[in-house]
């Protein structure tokens, strides 16, 4: 065994430290399919069921996860970055912090940014009306955008959707989203 190998292994401990610092209970990076969505949900649900929080809190965490993860299966770029999806969930004094990230095409950035910015300025009542309008009037095409899921997340958490776009290359940006479910 040489020391080089051991130095290389330091990242394991580094990742653990990073996860501890951010109070993460689950961290995933890779492809996203319905099977993986269900596996991540089952893992988190087992942890949630060990807590004594109300069913509503558990359902909200579950709901935010479903919408974040299914947005990724539906809208992330399926090209060379299909394994670049990220999902993390942390637990702190404030509540459950849910993080997701995926690569999207550059031309979709403005639309998504505008949508989230608009949702973040809406009151609870406006979000409710918007949600009702949406399920009544918008076509349910997989390509109609991540609107309904994002509205649902904003409504159920009552907190702003925090987001960021980081350029990956000319054609792609990495979209990160963070939401807090209070407990």
């Amino acid at each position: 065994m040489n020391t080089q190998t051991l130095d290389d292994l330091k990242f394991v401990s580094e990742v653990r430290k990073q996860m501890d610092e951010n109070q993460l209970m689950l961290s995933y990076r890779g492809e996203m399919s319905q099977e993986i969505v269900m596996a991540l949900l089952n893992l988190t649900e087992n942890k949630l069921n060990q807590t004594s929080f109300d069913t509503s809190i558990k359902t909200r965490v579950f709901g935010v996860m479903v919408e974040c993860l299914q947005n990724i299966t539906k809208h992330s770029d399926k090209g060379s970055h299909e394994r670049s999806n990220v999902f993390m969930i942390g637990f702190s004094d404030q509540g459950y912090m849910i993080y997701s990230g995926n690569v999207i095409r550059t031309e979709k950035v403005d639309e998504l940014r505008n949508k989230i910015t608009r949702i973040n300025t809406m009151t609870e009542e406006e979000l409710k009306d918007f949600y009702k309008y949406w399920i009544k009037n918008e076509a349910l095409s997989g390509k109609s955008g991540a609107g309904l899921g994002l509205i649902h997340i904003a409504r159920k958490t009552g907190n702003p959707l925090e987001f960021d776009f980081e350029q990956v290359d000319n054609d792609h940006y990495f979209f990160s989203l963070r939401t807090l479910v209070d407990h």
């Binding site: 399920i135 349910l140 309904l148 899921g149 649902h152």
Partner: peptide, 10 residues
């Protein structure tokens, strides 16, 4: 017990 937003439309 739970339904996603896509199901809410259906």
């Amino acid at each position: 017990e739970y339904f996603n937003t896509a199901s809410s439309k259906l």
